[in-house]
């Protein structure tokens, strides 16, 4: 029996809490997260709800729960789309060397020059701000990351003897990729998936902090911080909750990724 590493345990717990409260927010929150209650305006924790109320009297705790759904939804969608495209390019590049491999290298170099906020500024000009812009901007940046990881991992699998045996048996590249390569690199992809979703949450928060994310009144952690900045001297408590929520969510997903890596690849435990 392997012992479960501490980071996996802790990361799993935080991630479960994150997903759980995000899903729960679809059915129940202590208050309606978009309902104004001007009487509660800028009230502190305890005076109005668990975490106080914002500048128009919305319940911060409920907004944090609902904001989790927004963050997680955008980050997960972006990571799934970007990750799938990146992995597809990566495993194809590993299977077909030559022109395609070179081309994928070029594409990566170009995409790498576009961090999410830059893509969002560019896409914002085209599409306007919003959830879709966020997803594309974040997803684009995921592509080179997953291409690099999956290509490296797939190249290792391709050099194994059992792949040579499969090639002898007359199986095509596509079939070998589906039957042998993808199952064998799935653990590494899963690790990366957890870590990148965390980065996606961080990027989404940044975009909505700048007002380039999902449109109001849908609650989002980044915009809660942007609003809190305006009232930073009168209601400093508003700055804390969204920041802690973002940090915890990213921390949890990072720990989950690290823990999965330690579990599946004990050699890297020391070094990583």
């Amino acid at each position: 029996m392997k012992r479960i590493p501490l980071n996996l345990w802790l990361g799993g717990l935080i991630s479960t809490l994150l997903v759980g409260s995000a899903v729960l927010s679809r059915f129940w929150t202590p208050e309606d997260p978009i309902k104004m209650n001007i009487l509660n305006r800028l009230k502190g924790p305890g005076d109005a709800g668990l975490l106080g109320a914002d500048q128009i009297g919305r319940d911060v705790f409920s907004m944090i729960m609902a904001g989790g759904w927004t963050s997680l939804g955008i980050a997960l969608t972006a990571t799934i789309i970007g990750g799938s495209i990146g992995t597809l390019i990566g495993v194809t590049a590993a299977a077909k060397s030559g022109i395609f491999e070179k081309a994928s290298g070029w594409i990566n170099s170009v995409l790498f020059a576009f961090p999410p906020i830059l893509s969002a500024i560019l896409l914002g000009a085209l599409l306007g701000p919003g959830g879709l812009t966020s997803i594309i901007a974040i997803g684009v940046f995921m592509i080179p990351v997953f291409t690099r990881i999956s290509r490296g991992a797939a190249m290792q699998i391709w050099s194994r003897d059992y792949i040579k045996a499969a090639k002898m048996a007359g199986k095509g590249q596509a079939l070998i990729t589906i039957e042998h390569v993808l199952p064998n690199i799935s653990a590494q992809l899963l690790v990366q998936f957890a870590i990148q979703t965390g980065l996606g949450i961080l990027a989404e928060a940044g975009l909505s902090f700048l007002g380039m994310g999902i449109a109001p009144p849908t609650p989002s952690w980044g915009r809660m911080l942007a609003d809190a900045q305006t009232y930073i001297s009168t209601a400093p408590h508003l700055v804390l909750a969204p920041g802690i929520a973002i940090a915890l969510a990213v921390l949890g997903l990072n720990l989950l990724g690290d823990g999965l890596r330690d579990l599946t690849d004990p050699r890297r435990k020391q070094a990583s």
Binding site: I232, P236, G243, A249, L251, N254, L255
Partner: peptide, 22 residues
């Protein structure tokens, strides 16, 4: 390093303003 990677820099900025400026 675990916390530093997870914490958004604009939030650190807000906390620094809260502490060292205000």
């Amino acid at each position: 390093s675990q916390f530093g990677i997870a914490v958004p820099n604009f939030w650190i900025g807000l906390l620094l303003i809260l502490l060292f400026s205000l």
